[in-house]
Nucleic acid binder design. Structure first.
Lengths: 312, 312
DNA sequence: ATAGCTGTTGCCGAAACGGCAGCAACATGT
DNA sequence: ACATGTTGCTGCCGTTTCGGCAACAGCTAT
C-alpha cells in the first residue's frame, strides 16, 4: 500500500537520518535515486530544502515546512491503514510512548499490561527521557503519545490532559522525619539531601523554592536517576524529592515514607501533561489507549490528593 | 509543485465528479489513465473504493476512508503551499465560505470588504445554503469556513465559536405591535404571520414553540427566503421571524421594527456556530480571517444582546 | 434500433525511476 | 603529506510506470 510518490518517503528518510546515503541504506535503494528525488523536490518547491554541509544535510526553513507537511501525510496514512485494517479484524499496530521516568514504576507497566490483555495485537514502544526531549520526540514524529512535566509546550503539540500531583520528600522508615504528616523544605534541609541534577525537571521545580531560603546547604548527593534517588533514600542516605507516582512498590514494602511538601503553608505541585501532535488524528486503537491513560492518571491524581488532603 | 502521486489527485477528482470520464475532463487527461489509477489504488488497498453503477461511481466504506485521508493530504498541501508563499511576499489565496442567509445582509459583506482592503490578494468564494448543507460542504472539503445554525455537528467538524442571538419578530413601523418592547408568540399569532418553510432553520426553532400552543392558526405566507420575508414584513404583509443579524439596513431606514421574542418569560435564542473541518490546519491567511469573523460576531452578539437586555 | 453515455482494456510511445560506476570535495587517521 | 573513508552529485542505460488512442461491452433514453 504505497500510493504516495517516492519523493515524499525519501525526503522523510533523509530528514530523519540527516544523510542521503544513510537514507538510501534504510530505504534499500541506490543513493543516486534518493539524491535525484530530493533535487526534483527542491526544483518543484523552487527553493532548497536542505543545507548541504560536509557531513550530512540540515533542513532549511522551507524544508522544515515541508517536513511538517510530510509528517502530517505519513501519520495520516498510518491512521488510514489502521482504520481499514480494523474494518475486517482486530486492532493491530504500534503505540510509541515517550515519557519521563516517574511513570515507569507503576503507571505505565500497569496500563500496558491491562491493555495488552485486551488487545493483544497492539505492540508498544516506550522510551524514557527528559521532559523537553519528550516534547521534541513528539514534534519529530518519533512518538505518538508523550508524558512530561507540564512546561510551556510548543503550539504544534496539544495538551490532552493536565494532572497535578503533590511533590513530596522521600525518606527511609527510620528517618527522624518519617513520623511527620507533612514537611517543609527547611525541615528537610536540616538533613542530608539527595538532589536532582538540572536534567531532571524536579530540579526546576525545587530550585526556585530553595533559592528563596536564607541558607542553602551543600547537597549530600546529586543524581539524574529517579530510581537511584529512590533507592538511596530507602537506604537512609538522605532525603529525596519526587511525586508519589513512582514509589508504589517501595512504600508497599514499607521501606519508604512519602511526606508531602509544604511551602509557605501551601502544597508544592508537580504538573504532569499528556501530549500529542496537534496536527494529527490518532488511529482508533491509539486514541483508545490515550483515553485509558488519561483516565488512569486522573484516578491516581484523585486518590493521592485525597490521601494527603490539602492544607487549609 | 505536484509531488503527490497522480493516483491521489485522480481519486479526488473522481470522488467529486462521481464519474471517471468527467474527472478525466476536469484533469485534462484521458479517461483510461484515470481508470487505471483507480484500479491500481484498489489493488493496493486490497478492496474496491467505488461501487460501479450504470451511471457513475459511488464511494464504498473503504473509499470514504480514503477520501478522508486524501482530503487531509490535499488540504494540508494547500496550507504548505501558502506557508511557503507567505515567506517571500504577501498573502495570497482563496477563502471559501459556506453560510446561511442571515449573514449576507451585513456581517459578511462588511467583513470581506475590510479584509480585502488589508490583504488585496486574498480572494473569496461565498456560497449561501441551508444549515445542514453548510456542514456537508465543509465535510466534502468544498468550503474552508462554515457558518450555520448550531445543531449537533458531526465529529469531523470543529465548532470554532458559538454565538447566540435573540430571535425576534419583524414588523413594519405602522404595525400594531410596533410600539411594544418585546412580544410573545401568542401576541404575534393574533396577526397574519410570514412563516419560514422547513428548509430554513428558523422553522425548526419556532416549530416546537408553536406546537405547545393550544391554537395553531393558518400562516398567511410561507417562504424560504430570509430576504423575501424581510421585505414582506416591511410592506406590512405580516409578522416575520428572524434574528436581528440580517436587518441592519432596513431598520436603519426605520421601515422595520425588531421585537425580541419572549417565550414563557425567557428569550428565544438562535445559536450561530462557526465551523471548520476538524482534521485540518488552516493556512495562515484563512486562520486570520476566521479570527476576525469570530471577533466580529462576538462583537455583534454583545451589542445586540445589550440593546435588548435579558428579561429577569 | 439508434445514439449517447458509462468503465475497461490492448497497444505503443514517452516520461520517470532506479542501479552502476565514477566524479570532486571534505574529514579523519597514519 | 598521504591514504582512506565519507559526503552528495551526475552520465549512462535498462526497467517500470504513465498516458493517449482506439475499440469494446454494458446500460439508458429516445
Amino acid at each position: 500500500m504505497r500510493f504516495h510518490s517516492p519523493a515524499i518517503q525519501y525526503f522523510h528518510a533523509v530528514r530523519r537520518t540527516g544523510s542521503i546515503r544513510a537514507a538510501a541504506r534504510v530505504l534499500n535503494v541506490a543513493s543516486s535515486a534518493v539524491s535525484r528525488q530530493i533535487l526534483k523536490l527542491e526544483q518543484e518547491v523552487g527553493s532548497p530544502l536542505f543545507e548541504r554541509t560536509t557531513r550530512g544535510l540540515t533542513l532549511t526553513t522551507v524544508g522544515e515546512m515541508l517536513a511538517r507537511h510530510v509528517m502530517n501525510v505519513l501519520q495520516d496514512l498510518d491512521r488510514f491503514r489502521s482504520d481499514v485494517a480494523s474494518l475486517s479484524g482486530a486492532w493491530h499496530g504500534n503505540i510509541s510512548i515517550a515519557c519521563i521516568e516517574s511513570l515507569t514504576e507503576s503507571v505505565l507497566p500497569d496500563l500496558i499490561a491491562t491493555h495488552r490483555s485486551q488487545a493483544r495485537r497492539v505492540s508498544f514502544t516506550t522510551e524514557v527521557m527528559g521532559s523537553s526531549a519528550v516534547l521534541e520526540a513528539l514534534r519529530r514524529g518519533e512518538a505518538d503519545i508523550g508524558i512530561a512535566i507540564a512546561l510551556r509546550h510548543p503550539p504544534d503539540l496539544r495538551q490532552v490532559a493536565l494532572k497535578r500531583f503533590r511533590l513530596g520528600a522521600l525518606v527511609a522508615r527510620e528517618h527522624p522525619l518519617a513520623r511527620r504528616k507533612t514537611v517543609t523544605l527547611e525541615q528537610c534541609l536540616a538533613f542530608p539531601v539527595i538532589h536532582a541534577l538540572p536534567e531532571l525537571s524536579i530540579y526546576h521545580l525545587l530550585q526556585p523554592l530553595i533559592a528563596q531560603l536564607s541558607e542553602t546547604p551543600e547537597p549530600a548527593i546529586q543524581a539524574n536517576s529517579i530510581d537511584l534517588m529512590r533507592e538511596l533514600a530507602a537506604r537512609g542516605v538522605g532525603v529525596a524529592f519526587q511525586t508519589q507516582l513512582g514509589i508504589g512498590r517501595l512504600s508497599r514494602d514499607a521501606q519508604l515514607v512519602f511526606l508531602p511538601l509544604d511551602n509557605a503553608g501551601s502544597p508544592v505541585w508537580s504538573d504532569l501533561g499528556i501530549y500529542v501532535r496537534a496536527e494529527r488524528t490518532l488511529p482508533a486503537f491509539t486514541e483508545s489507549f490515550l483515553q485509558e491513560l488519561v483516565r488512569e492518571l486522573g484516578e491516581r491524581e484523585r486518590r493521592e490528593n485525597a490521601a494527603y488532603p490539602q492544607v487549609a
